[in-house]
Write a protein that binds this DNA or RNA. Structure first.
Lengths: 341, 341
DNA sequence: CTGAAAGCGCTTACAG
DNA sequence: CTGAAAGCGCTTACAG
């Protein structure tokens, strides 16, 4: 047998002097077929190393059993934990997963959506590229295949959205700082109004209001790119103020770690002088000194949940397009950066 | 037009009162077709939101343009950078990528190989699960589709293997410590003889020999699971010795970071008393205090290279099975954990 | 219990 | 310049 050759039903049928139909049925354990025949067929199939061509099967059944996934950046840790959940759940349910990256480019994202529908995926899981504005492209895809959004979502797209309890999580994080006795709590958030940043900011505001703490515009800082470097830069600005904050809530771990790096540099005691809380529970949050208090986002569960909702829609396609939001609970992981002395 | 409906060539043909053949050729800009006809066809195709069913096309051409990827753990940072490279290069070359995780289980790995060949992927990229012993399964797959291994490879599998210059990289890392004036250099490696651990250990030995430094068995430590926790544990053992080492070379960043955490706890000066060098240039290596000297592994390049070699084999299937090793160069990133005072 | 035939959507050699 | 027909590998309703 030469290399790269795949045995087909036809070959088996020829060798056994049976019809293709019978061979197919025998392999699929169809009740009609004689036990003896089944045995013979299966034996030869094993010998000839036969395995069904799933592509042909999918083609016939008009169902690919493939889920397409589009994420902004695959090497972002939180994203990779979601992907892990997606892969696990998809495998359990008998689906394969095609992954692609939009690199936060809307153009690329549209291209990916097109390839995926052309390819005939049964459904699409997507976390939106930053600044996704031309929702039309996504809506057009929605006519072809069900979509479930996760993490970076948009209410403008009428479909199921799997997110964490952003607002509540931020509320809890800030309340934790207040209970620690902190009163001048700065926030480092995004300039652009992403779903996530907006919700976390709302939680911050609500916590302050709820506890009767005055909102100080001066210590509400924003940045385009919510990274370690900008977390550090904005913290330096906070430190240059006449009246420094006594806590910093950064809406990402990266920015919070940047903040800690800045505070460490000036030998400011954490959490006594300034406490810090982040968001994500990334691997780095346990590496930084002092270890970072942060919101744990269960990526695995988000991924699994998104897959479940998507497969539900694949199995029972409904024509009523609705925006449904599914919230996954998070927990605050308290570490040294905000531990009561 | 109802939801979830895909226009087909047949429908276009019917609407235009043309044959399916003509419509197909018009859309593919076949020179035989009348310009006017092409225009009409294309116009209607746009109106009816037609896009070709790639599944049908693949089915006919017996080529899926899909690459299967199997990795032990998708959320390992280094792996995700390789995946990034794979996705980028695959897209450029017009391939789609199916990703799955073996979770370091050989059984699961075999299953994935089977599904992928059944599915008819054009080729497979794989990083082996730990302790892959039953090479037979992989060899059987090799009869169906070309395989290129990367990172976790095995010489027992006759195929192209894309790796980094493990031995040389370790040699350079240890030589760097020697040039710093260190003489009692401990190594933290894996118990099990993985390709990577073996090569790095060989580089360590060669560097010591090359510089006429005696090899001390006592400070050559091994662990099953080369993680932060075990890096810390083994470092504690090193610290309990009568004569402590003056440097630690850990064959992963995780273990090196564990080492630094242990040293920090005992307020041991890094690098003056004990210098530390890791391997990977993970995100965490820039977070830990002091920042970690480590070997930068260009994941992106590894991924791209693996895709290129695989597509070469897909395009020109050769029957001569050979083991070819492709080495990607690394660089040592010197940071505070080994910086001359 | 087994077989002949249709069909999934597409491309292309062959005919006119 | 256009069309009828075969075929990629499989499943299944229909017939016997």
């Amino acid at each position: 047998m030469s290399k790269r050759h795949n045995t087909t039903l036809k070959e088996l049928a020829l060798a056994l002097n049976l019809s293709i139909s019978t061979v197919s049925r025998a392999l699929n354990d169809h009740p009609d077929i004689n036990e003896k025949t089944k045995e013979n067929v299966k034996k030869l199939a094993r010998q000839m190393n036969y395995s069904p061509n799933l592509f042909a099967r999918s083609f016939r059944s008009q169902k690919t059993n493939i889920i397409g996934v589009i994420v902004p950046n695959i090497s972002h840790y939180f994203t990779s934990t979601i992907l892990k959940g997606i892969l696990e759940e998809a495998e359990i349910q008998g689906y394969r997963v095609i992954i692609s990256e939009s690199n936060n480019s809307e153009t690329k994202q549209t291209e990916m959506l097109n390839t995926m529908t052309q390819f005939g995926v049964d459904g699409i899981l997507m976390s939106l590229a930053r600044k996704t504005t031309k929702v039309d492209d996504v809506l057009r895809t929605l006519n072809r295949a069900p979509i479930v959004l996760f993490d970076k979502v948009s209410q403008k797209i009428p479909c199921t959205q799997v997110v964490i309890n952003e607002e509540e999580a931020a509320f809890n994080a800030v309340e934790h700082l207040i209970e620690l006795g902190k009163e001048r709590i700065a926030i480092i958030k995004e300039t652009e109004n992403s779903y996530n940043s907006e919700k976390r900011y709302a939680g911050y505001l609500r916590a302050l209001e709820h506890h009767g703490i005055r909102i100080r515009e001066k210590i509400i800082l924003s940045t385009e790119d919510i990274s370690l470097i900008h977390g550090r830069r904005l913290t330096n600005i906070l430190l240059s103020m006449k009246k420094r904050p006594d806590a910093i809530f950064a809406i990402t771990d990266d920015a919070a770690i940047g903040a800690i790096k800045a505070l460490n540099k000036f030998k400011i005691k954490i959490p006594e002088e300034i406490a810090v809380v982040g968001f994500s529970n990334s691997a780095s949050s346990k590496i930084i000194q002092p270890e970072l208090t942060t919101v744990d986002q269960p990526g695995d569960k988000i991924g699994r949940t998104a897959v479940k909702y998507l497969i539900d829609e694949i199995d029972s396609p409904s024509n009523n397009i609705i925006t449904k939001t599914v919230e996954i609970k998070t927990t605050l992981v308290v570490r040294d950066s905000s531990l009561r002395a």
